[in-house]
Design a protein around this nucleic acid. Structure first.
Lengths: 238, 238
DNA sequence: CGAACAGTTGATCAGGATCAACTCGAGTGG
DNA sequence: CCACTCGAGTTGATCCTGATCAACTGTTCG
């Protein structure tokens, strides 16, 4: 439960034993949410800070007429409402699958950060990393073809899943529909479908029933012009 | 010089007198840079924290083959390399006009943040705001037409300039070329040109020689589906 | 006076959107 | 056990937004 959060924060920088203990002592409400549940809502100022412990979720902005832009996909360990610690939310977070989350009161979290600047710094660093991912995504939407965009997204997902031990042998569970991918990449569903077929035909991936397999990693990286530097992973980031 | 930074941080939350004094005591190197100068470079880990005091700049990612995506425009008061305080940079910042910047050593800045958690929090909040702008931008690139995208960008620029006292009567100096706008919005230059003409023809804006005038604010807001909530400005944000 | 750059215009092209069916499970309920 | 529905994926045909190519204007500046 809390361990996921501690591990995540510790990846951002060293934590003193006291800081770790303080985090471990967090009174959290573990909660299980069904697929499709709205974990956080546009406009809210959440009372809690929510960490995804198990399952997948995504952040998205819904436009009045039904159009939707998916902003990011969350995997285990991610703090899904970082912005909620200081601001109200500008978009929503929805569970993609059944999710287990850990919630700690925002006020308590702020208390911990006041006592342990290292914790505050870790959250800040997480916010910056999120920003870096947004920017990489922007480059794709502004300047890359559909083919490259899809490839780039799949690379990013794979690297992030690997980093938290959720992918092996370029194989990972990525429970999205093609509609989700479309809304993430700014494409129509039909075109996403065709692009995935092209990637399959080129022997780069296979992707059926939420099981993503990357069959040609260097090929996919090249197709997506993917450079993992922006994820700022330690060590064997590649 | 430093005052710009202090004012900006103070907009993010209260600062104690001690914190303000500490900031005011920053030994900063004021510098003037010519238009086109690269203020920060992709891949660098800057030694300084740079605040734009006067002039305009933009953050951008250059792709190997010459394509370019502009990520954001910076105006007076902005910290242009927030990410550099904790991470290396994933993109570059270039001066749009001659700029005056204030630079304080990163180490010193960290010292201040250790002593004054309020300052650290303000920087964190700035980072979150930047993220919110990126996301709003993503929605546009993914799901809006060229016309709406341009309108949205111009709205954002105007609101931000207003907020720092650089715009009056819906009139502001916005020293970008149409090529810059194109790279910011993911459009071709030709199409940006035509879209601007359409906005002019519809009586929404005029934009010549770096002087942006919004002639029909409600109209432009509607055209761009612009909702300033994501900028989290205090009070009379509209 | 001639670069060099910014803006503009016209003509043509293409990437991706849209519209409309149809297939294929996986439930679900009678 | 079968009929029915519903969501996801797939396919084909057509349309259109915005890209590309190419030229030309105007302005600034050395």
């Amino acid at each position: 439960m809390v361990e996921r959060l501690i591990a995540n924060l510790q990846n951002q920088g060293p934590l003193s034993a006291a800081a770790r203990d303080a985090l471990a002592g967090l009174q959290g409400a573990p909660k299980t949410l069904p697929a499709g549940a709205e974990i956080a809502s546009d406009g809210d100022r959440p009372q809690d800070c929510t960490v995804l412990v198990r399952g997948h979720a995504f952040r998205h902005k819904n436009l009045p007429d039904g159009r939707r832009q998916i902003i990011s996909f969350y995997i285990a360990g991610d703090v899904v409402d970082l912005q909620g610690l200081l601001l109200s939310l500008d978009d929503s977070v929805t569970a993609l699958t059944a999710c287990e989350v850990f919630q700690a009161s925002r006020a308590r979290m702020h208390g911990l950060m006041d006592d342990h600047p290292q914790i505050a710094r870790a959250f800040w660093r997480l916010s910056l990393l999120e920003g870096a991912m947004f920017r990489a995504w922007m480059v794709g939407m502004g300047r890359r073809t559909a083919y490259a965009r899809v490839a780039h997204l799949l690379c990013e997902v794979m690297v992030r899943m690997r980093a938290v031990g959720l992918a092996e042998n370029n194989r990972a569970n990525f429970p999205v529909t093609q509609a989700h991918l479309s809304d993430a990449l700014g494409l129509s569903m039909v075109h996403t479908n065709r692009t995935l077929q092209a990637l399959r035909a080129d022997g780069l991936i296979s992707f059926r029933g939420h099981e993503l397999v990357i069959r040609d990693w260097p090929g996919l990286v090249a197709a997506g012009e993917f450079d993992p530097a922006y994820l700022h992973l330690p060590g064997k980031a590649r």
